[in-house]
């Protein structure tokens, strides 16, 4: 079945999924995964372990670390 024969609802759905995939994952899947891991860890700190101070400091620090990892990856790719 070529793209012209695909029902319009599937084309719209595919376009919707592709837009969000490009928007959130794109060429930096590491940032997407790292953000989910960071938010999950902070949820554990704050909601399960009740550690507000640790969560408060860890959230921006881990985000900076995720950004650093992604930038390092880009730099290594650039050298190759």
């Amino acid at each position: 079945m070529n793209s012209d024969q695909t029902p319009w609802i599937f084309r719209v759905l595919k376009g919707f999924v592709m837009f969000w995939w490009d928007f959130l994952v794109g060429d930096t899947p590491e940032l997407f995964v790292a953000t989910l891991v960071v938010v999950g860890f902070i949820a554990l700190c704050r909601i399960v372990w009740q550690l507000n101070a640790l969560a408060l400091i860890a959230l921006p620090v881990l985000c900076v670390a995720a950004l650093g990892i992604s930038l390092g990856r880009a730099q290594r790719a650039n050298r190759k």
Binding site: F23, L24, G26, T28, L31, F32, T35, L36, V38, V39, C63, A66, L67, S70, L71, A74
Partner: peptide, 15 residues
Amino acid sequence: TILLIFGMQWLRKAI
């Protein structure tokens, strides 16, 4: 969470 992902993507590109 969405803004964090989106914001870091822009920040990464700008850096």
